[in-house]
Simulated scan of single mutants.
Amino acid sequence: MDALKDRVCIITGAGRGIGREHALLFAAEGAKVVVNDLGGARDGAGADATPAQQVVDEIRQAGGEAVANYDDVSSTDGAQNLIDQAVETFGDLHVLVNNAGILRDRMLVSQSDDDWDSIMKVHLRGHFAPSRAAANYWRAQSKAGKDGKRSIISTSSTSGLFGNVGQSNYGAAKSGIATFSIIANLELKRYGVRVNAVAPAASTRLTATVQGKLDSAESFGASKSETWTPLDPENISPFVAYLATQDCPINGRAFFVMGGEVHLFQPWVIVDGLRKDGKWTVEELAAQAGRFQDYKFDYGHAAGQRIFDQ
């Protein structure tokens, strides 16, 4: 149970759901955990320090080390304060898990500017700002000759990588996070930082009303079943913890994780094409390009189809 012994780890959005399970497992594996959660509602409204503090109390009662943080990680100052708190409290920083998120599901025709902007702020800025602050700390450490094995794990979504009706804002942000992770990995390798992304499939308060399984999303987790289920959020955390370990070699990758399954995504690739010497005419393309619609995509291991079937 010491896979993360003495690793200083920040987990954002760790007061509930998947983030909470990350925090509990990381601490059980010996990590010193900064539990960040603004404590807002599923749509981002409001703030409440209770969820983060409850997770910290649970970790401490089990003999682990943790501290709560309530900053808004989508703000530059909040993200910097989060990184500073980790270093000041535990002496260093080794792992950043970007997990904070909200939902503002709307069909495109009825989506407001605020529905779009709020999602982009919490998800994209909420991943960018802490990652930038952590990267600057690690770059300074590297330049000072203090080499280390550092890791960023960001939370993408199947809504972004496979697509989902009613989530054009959320899906756009989540696919952006996957791309952000791949590029950040290319830039930060020189400082000993590995960056990966995970697209989890699990039942949480964010997904509960979408799945129509609970009368109240806020009540999810109140009565946890003892029977293992593929959609339990705790199933996601072991792989995230592995990505956070000191000697994990994986970098620049995105994964689908659900239940007992872990699948590797392949980034955008060209799978078919047309070519001629010279400029195409519209008439020539009309005669040949229609075949692109008939191309059958291979989602691999039927993982994608299982998402659509849920």
Rank of each mutant, 00 (worst) to 15 (best):
Phe297Ala: 12
Ser223Gln: 07
Asp232Thr: 14
Leu243Ser: 09
Ser225Leu: 06
Ser223Gly: 13
Val257Thr: 05
Asp232Leu: 11
Phe297Ile: 08
Leu243His: 09
His301Val: 00
Cys248Arg: 04
Glu234Val: 07
Lys276Cys: 09
Lys279Thr: 12
Pro249Tyr: 08
Gln305Tyr: 02
Thr229Ser: 14
Leu274Met: 15
Asp232His: 13
Asp298Tyr: 04
Gln305Asn: 05
Val210Arg: 00
Tyr299Gly: 05
Gly221Ser: 10
Gln246Asn: 08
Ile236Cys: 03
Leu243Asn: 12
Met258Val: 15
Tyr295Phe: 05
Lys279Trp: 11
Arg306Asn: 05
Leu264Arg: 04
Ala303Arg: 00
Ala241Thr: 06
Asp232Gly: 15
Val210Trp: 00
Trp228Tyr: 11
Tyr295Ala: 10
Val240Trp: 07
Phe297Cys: 06
Arg253Lys: 15
Val269Asn: 15
Asp294Ala: 08
Gln246Glu: 15
Leu231Gly: 07
Ala289Val: 05
Ile270Arg: 07
Arg253Ser: 15
Cys248Leu: 12
Ser216Ile: 03
Asp294Asn: 08
Phe220Met: 12
Arg291Gly: 07
Ala244Pro: 13
Glu283Asp: 07
Arg253Cys: 15
Trp280Ala: 05
Val240Asp: 09
Ala303Cys: 10
Pro233Trp: 12
Ile270Val: 15
Ile270Gly: 09
Gly221Lys: 07
Thr245Val: 03
Ala289Ile: 04
Val262Gly: 01
His263Gln: 07
Gln246Asp: 11
Asp272Asn: 08
Trp268Ile: 14
Phe297Lys: 04
Phe292His: 10
Ser237Gly: 03
Val282Pro: 03
Gly252Arg: 11
Gly260Leu: 05
Asp247His: 09
Asp215Met: 06
Gly273Ile: 04
Leu231Glu: 09
Ala222His: 08
Trp268Met: 13
Gln288Arg: 10
Phe255Pro: 00
Gln246Pro: 02
His263Leu: 04
Asp215Ser: 11
Phe220Gln: 10
Thr245His: 01
Gly304Ala: 12
Phe255Gln: 00
Ile236Trp: 03
Leu231Ala: 12
Ser237Pro: 06
Glu283Arg: 01
Gly300Asn: 01
Gly304Cys: 04
Ala287Pro: 03
Leu285His: 06
Asp215Gly: 09
Leu243Cys: 13
Gly300Met: 02
Thr281His: 12
Ser237Trp: 03
Leu274Gln: 14
Phe256Arg: 00
Gln266Pro: 06
Ile250Trp: 14
Gly273Leu: 07
Ala302Pro: 01
Ile236Asp: 05
Glu261Cys: 03
Trp280Lys: 08
Pro230Gln: 08
Glu261Val: 11
Glu234Gln: 04
Leu274His: 13
Phe265Pro: 02
Ile270Gln: 10
Leu243Glu: 13
Leu231Arg: 06
Asn235Thr: 04
Arg253Pro: 07
Glu283Pro: 04
Ala254Met: 02
Gln293Pro: 02
Lys224Ala: 09
Arg291His: 12
